[in-house]
């Protein structure tokens, strides 16, 4: 009985999140991967090195992946005695998990921080900004679909060999499969990758205006870090969604996280509370972000940040 993993491709390789899931599955048992993307021997080899024994590969081309992926994965699962399918928090992960759940009548448990499989599947998660830990047990037979948060499992190249690769034909999903992708746009940010950066400088609504992000770019540049933000500034159109940190954005775990003008809403905190050192600048002494900051500065960021930039410049 294999553990299944839903994996997606980005820039010709499995996403980092997919590899975390493959490593986790490999630590629990035989691992079968359902891989959506163009696919290549190199990509399959990476999955194998992380522990995938079998890879089912589906290329959805320009069709929005959810409907065909859920149909094809559902057919594979129906003939198996699988109890657990792991998904990440990516948008397509969530799309496929939802459709698949409805197809199979299978439960979805979301926001998982850990998962175990004995007779049944048990998932732990946190609610209320991480103040309460919740343990959920699946009480239905058949596969449980578990969506886990990024960076809770460590991806590890364990030197596994080439997996057995099966090509899955694109199923005809009729009306459900009618959505097509007509254009793809990359809103690239400069500098290091936010999810991998060791220093993150993050801005919130307290910046007051979109052009103030230039100040954070400069600070991040001096520290060799990346710039992120809250959903408030993304929704306001100040920075692209790729900057968003939190529940519905990226999860970062840098050595240093600097929060400027961020209140510390629980949906933001879940995306950054794993940072080793947290520094917060906020003019409100009661801002919730201070509850988790190693150093909190109660003050105007428009004064503190420029001073910090000058101080760092004069050192180099």
């Amino acid at each position: 009985m294999a553990i299944w993993v839903f994996a997606e491709e980005i820039d010709g390789a499995p996403t980092p999140g997919s590899l975390e899931l493959v490593s986790k599955a490999n630590s629990m048992g035989d691992t079968a991967v359902f891989y959506v993307g163009a696919g290549s021997p190199e990509a399959f080899a990476v999955l194998g090195a992380h522990g995938a024994g079998t890879v089912y590969h589906l290329d959805t081309g320009d069709v929005l992946p959810a409907a065909p992926a859920a149909r094809a994965l559902g057919e594979l699962l129906e003939g198996s005695d699988t109890k657990l399918v792991l998904f990440g928090m990516g948008n397509t992960d969530r799309d496929v998990a939802g459709r698949l759940s409805a197809r199979l009548g299978a439960p979805v448990v979301a926001n998982g921080l850990d998962v175990s499989l004995q007779d049944t599947v048990t998932v732990t998660s946190e609610i209320l900004g991480g103040s309460l830990s919740v343990t959920t047990q699946v009480v239905l037979d058949g596969p449980a679909l578990v969506i886990t948060r990024p960076k809770v499992f460590v991806s590890e190249d364990t030197g596994g060999g080439s997996p057995e690769v099966h090509t899955v034909a694109l199923p005809d999903t009729g009306r459900s499969g009618g959505a097509t992708i007509t254009e793809r746009h990359v809103e690239a940010s400069e500098g290091p990758d936010l999810e991998a950066a060791q220093i993150v400088v993050s801005g919130g609504r307290g910046l007051g205006a979109p052009d103030k992000f230039a100040m954070l770019d400069e600070l991040a540049g001096l520290l060799g870090g990346a710039v992120g933000g809250t959903r408030a500034v993304v929704d306001a159109g100040w920075v692209p969604y790729s900057y968003q940190i939190g529940q519905t954005g990226k999860t970062v775990k840098p050595s240093v996280y600097i929060a400027a003008g961020i209140s510390g809403a629980m949906q933001h905190i879940v995306g950054m509370k794993g940072s080793s050192t947290i520094i917060a600048i906020n003019k409100d002494p009661d801002a919730p972000i201070f509850a988790l900051a190693d150093l909190g500065v109660v003050g105007d960021l428009h004064k503190v940040v420029p001073q910090l930039i000058e101080a760092l410049k004069s050192r180099s």
Binding site: T136, L140, A291, L295
Partner: peptide, 29 residues
Amino acid sequence: TQAVIAVEPVASRAAGELVEDDGEAYLKI
């Protein structure tokens, strides 16, 4: 399909130092 079997408080991260900016708080950073 699922049941919550336990809810427990999570040990929160200890808050650190809070300083009022007196014009030189950046030095602390």
